[in-house]
Each structure stands twice: as C-alpha cells, then as structure tokens.
Design a binder for these strands. Structure first.
Lengths: 189, 189
DNA sequence: TAAGTGACTGAAAAACTAAATTAGTCAAAG
DNA sequence: CTTTGACTAATTTAGTTTTTCAGTCACTTA
C-alpha cells in the first residue's frame, strides 16, 4: 500500500495543479489525495514551491521529448523547425496543466505561476538554441546570433498560433508552415 | 477666456490621463482642469469612454504621422519598414500617455484601457498593411498575405524591442535592423 | 527509534460592512 | 439656448473580522 510515497505525492500534486491551479491547491488536499500525512510531503520537498518546481521540470522534459519525437533527421532543417515548434505549442495548448497555469497567470497573476511559465519558455528557447547551433555546426544554415534567433522564432510561433486567434480565425498548421517558410527560407522581400 | 471649450476639455483630459491613467482620472477633475462645469463635458461627449476614444484616435494619428515623417521614399523598402516600425515602438515607449496606459493595463487590467491599446495595435497593423499592399502593387516586393505579414512584422518588432528586454540587455536600433534584415531580406536559412 | 502523522500556529487572504467616491443627470442660472 | 454644479445611484475603497492555509513539531506507530 504505502510503497513509493514520493511518487504518490508528485502524482497527487500534478493532478490537483492541473485541475485547480497552483493557488487553489492546498497541501492538505495533496496529502489527502496522496494518502500521506501532510508532514510527509515536507520530508521530500522543502515547500509548496519546490514541489511545483519538480512538476514543472518533468513537464519541460515531456515537452522536449514530444518535440524530439516529431523531428525527422532526413527532412530539411526548416521543416523540422516548424514541426518541433508546432508540436511544442500544441502541447502547450492541449496539456491540462499548461492550460490551467496559463489561465491562472492571466486571471489571477499568481507570481509563482508567472515565474514557472517564464522558466518553461526559457527552456524551450534553450532547446531551440541547441538545435540551431547544431545546424550551424553541420553547415546546414549560415551562422547567426543563436540567442536572438531562437528567441525570435518562438515569439513568431506564439504570435501565429496564440495571439492571432484573439482577432482572427485560427491558422492551420499548413498556413503557419507556409508563412514561416517565407521568413525562414527566402525572406519577405 | 471661454473660447474653444471642447478643445480645453480634450487637453485637460489628455493631461490627466497621461498623468494618472484612465481609472484615476475623474470627470470632476477634468472639468476643473478645463475650467468648465462637469455638465459641459457631457454636451460634447456621451461619456468618459467616448472622451477617451477621441484622445486615443488623436494619438494614433500622431503615431502614424511620426512614422510617415521617418520614411524616405528613396530608401529600400526593408529599411523603411524598420524605420517606421522602430519609430512607432519608440513612440510607444516614450509618449507619456502610452507609457501610463501600458502600465495601467499591466497593473490594474482596466478593461477600457486594454480595449484601447488593442485598438492602437490594430491601427498600426492596418497602417503596415497599406504600406505592404503599396509595395506589392509597385512590384517592390512579391505578393503575400498582407494581413498575416503586417501582423507578424509588428509582433516581431514588439518581441525584439520590448519582450527581449525582460531577460536581456536592450538591443540597439542597429542590431534590430540587422536581425530584421535577415528575416526580411534573405531568410534565416 | 526512525518514519510518519495531523493538531496547532502565525501569517495571509477572503468575506463582510460601512464609508467615500464618482459617472452621469437635470433643474435652475446666466 | 448654453452652462452649471448639486444630486443620485451605483460602484469602489477602506477598515474590520473571519477563515484559510503553509509549514512545524510533539506525538504515535510499527
């Protein structure tokens, strides 16, 4: 029964964060869901935020794995950039925990949540950066400031996938790929 | 003394919105500043929001004029895109009213303010769209979806000018021009 | 006697209430 | 006719009380 207590706690917390968000999840609730005493949580995690941190780290790993899964080495670099980025943002808009956190940030502006979402964004940018550096080393694309490039790539994607929908009909994956191809491949002019 | 009452009201309101923001500006205050009775304001404007609307419209006109001023027809299209966009965002970060409104939106989330800022953004996109359509007609650049392109151009600029500064040293106008040139002129790959 | 627990505590947030503010009106003044 | 500012209803703020909750630690249990 009382086997991996730590795992039980993380699972319970993940479930609760996904369902109610960070603020609305109480440690008593997590303890009850995990079938442990509240004190037990504190033998594994210094505080609520550290528990959250661990869950976010797993989430990032899961996202990167999803992106990797969709990349095919024989396809052109541009196509893989699109595939990886699209998958990452799809993940963001489909994964229950991400949805809840994005919503909580917008509606309540919870500080801890803002920080963690920023953290997720930074990890994605770091991931893109490594990919771009790899492509440059292999001579697949010309040298460029990888920090700015990866940053800008993500921002363009977020603009096309999320911001665009505020005022327009959503763009299909094909349309987004088309637009990105223009900017990545030949430039607007 | 009591000459253009309407103008006095708009000037007083502009000053107050710039200084205290939308919410913290009271109609009594505007009336006093404009040296008119409060009722007089309501002979010119249906309500507070309509007064605000008029001021925002002027602001947009001023912004567009600034952008136009900086454009030089003999320069290449790319260069002018950069000049105009950079000037627009510089205006946004230097103009007292814009600063105050952006701050008010972030800190208090005032609905009327969010709507008006969205309106400003839409006007900028419309302006860009007209410019791009003009360039396409003249054959200066190849045809493309002008709605998406202008939207994405603005988003890229906001990312480089504003978002970037959250985690990095600000980019100089030259650096931004350089990055944009890559994406606009030849593409990343 | 080490691991696990949940009642307890202070600090923070929510709920409630009373008081103050303010957008918009309109009867009277100019 | 235009202008006004006292007035009102509705909202917001400020002050107070109540509740909630993260984190601790004395105690239990195995």
């Amino acid at each position: 029964m009382a086997l991996d207590r730590r795992k039980m706690i993380v699972e319970a917390a993940t479930k609760s964060f996904s369902l109610f968000g960070y603020k609305a999840t109480t440690m008593d609730q997590v303890a009850k869901l995990a079938n442990v005493g509240k004190g037990t949580i504190y033998t594994f995690f210094k505080n609520k935020e550290e528990l959250f941190e661990e869950i976010i780290s797993s989430l990032v790993k899961e996202m990167i794995a999803e992106a990797e899964f969709v990349i095919q080495p024989d396809l052109p670099f541009t196509e893989n950039v699109h595939r990886a980025l699209y998958r990452l943002l799809e993940f963001r808009s489909q994964h229950q925990l991400m949805i809840k956190l994005v919503q909580e940030e917008k509606e309540m502006g919870t500080l801890a949540v803002s920080e963690k979402l920023q953290h997720v964004e930074n990890e994605i940018i770091e991931y893109l950066k490594r990919k771009i550096e790899g492509a440059i080393t292999k001579g697949a694309i010309p040298a460029a400031d990888t920090e700015i490039t990866s940053f800008l790539l993500l921002k363009m994607y977020i603009a096309l996938v999320s911001d665009w929908e505020r005022n327009h009909e959503p763009l299909s994956s094909e349309q987004i790929a088309e637009v990105m191809k223009v900017f990545l491949l030949k430039g607007l002019v």
